[in-house]
Design a protein around this nucleic acid. Structure first.
Lengths: 191, 191
DNA sequence: ATTATCTGCATCAGCTATGTTGCATTTAGA
DNA sequence: TCTAAATGCAACATAGCTGATGCAGATAAT
């Protein structure tokens, strides 16, 4: 069960942990090699406080990755991937994911080492994603001969590219619409 | 004129520089924070030799980025983006780029700071790329209403995703064909 | 109100990477 | 062959990060 051994921290301590994780995301996104000192400063906390909650740098990174992965999994579940009509689910999920990924870009870009909670979550997520695509394929939205694994990877890539260019300002629904349109139809001329 | 002030190094020195750059790519691709010592070892060279040719770590990274960007630009030019028929140019360019990017993944993924040679080259590349897409659009391969900047970014993303999953084994032409097909038609059912 | 927890601050030891220098040796080039 | 360039090696100084500790003051929880 990893590092989630937190046995009922005091309320202020829990606030500190959250502040540290959010600061770590902010700081490391700009400079992946940033020091604990910089993270502490951004969190409004002394460096020693970080060391009290996280044994070492790696433990902090792991916790960050887990936390972000949990939020991502939640964002997907909120889109009802198993029950909503495929197109609706895809749109909702995409919009949700865009928001979570834009807030936790660094943490979610981390290479999750096998066995970690984050890795397990990312596998679950990939499964959910493939399931939705399968439903879309059965509904005739995706070509029967298409390689769903490639389609899923293209979908991931479109999300990633959307986040790159966008400074976080544009409407998630508009962006999601473009992603799905591109995924299904590409850039070629419409019939 | 940046760091290319190299005034006729001796032949063996030039070999060393190349070995260092190639080793840096190899090592840093696996561990972006790797030490100069590790790079030197991988290059079969003493650490001090690296410091003789590159003032500091940043200078080495900059040189690496420039070198890789030059090769990428060359790979695109080799595809005759201005003269070959659009589809042919796109295919050739894609196959060439796949090979160069797979060999210099780290260097080309580096955030080129404005003003650097690498940044200028990447702008040239983006221009060439957009030009080819424009020709494809005029030829009716791409929808008239399409946003070419988005199309170009999607194209980049497809290349990036292709390189991720592929361990460098598959045939570049096959991969290029899938990229262009996906870019133009997406995953939807064929007419 | 009392207690257990949390935090900031100061401090310390240890480690590692960086960048430089001097010298002896090898190697390319004329 | 002769010279200038290039390299390896050893050593050194510096700087920055990490992780740990002790203590005094602030804060939550009962």
């Amino acid at each position: 069960m990893g590092e989630t051994a937190a046995r009922s921290l005091r309320a202020d301590a829990e606030r500190s942990v959250r502040a540290i994780l959010e600061a770590a995301e902010r700081v490391l996104a700009q400079e992946p090699g940033a020091s604990m000192e910089q993270i502490a400063a951004a969190a409004g906390v002394a460096r020693t406080t970080i060391h009290r909650r996280f044994a070492n740098r790696q433990a902090l990174i792991d916790a960050l990755a887990s936390s972000a992965a949990r939020q991502l999994a939640q964002a997907i579940d909120d889109g009802r991937p198993d029950t909503a009509p495929p197109l609706v689910a895809m749109h909702r999920i995409t919009a949700n994911v865009l928001q979570v990924k834009s807030a936790w870009a660094f943490a979610l870009g981390l290479p999750a080492d096998p066995g970690s909670e984050a890795a397990a979550l990312h596998q679950d997520i990939a499964r959910s994603c493939t399931a939705v695509l399968k439903r879309a394929q059965d509904a005739g939205l995706i070509d029967q001969a298409a390689d769903l694994d490639w389609v899923r990877r293209v979908y991931y890539a479109l999300i990633g590219e959307t986040l790159h260019g966008n400074a976080g300002g544009a409407d998630p629904d508009t962006l999601a619409a473009r992603i799905i349109d591109t995924l299904l139809h590409g850039a070629g001329p419409r019939a």
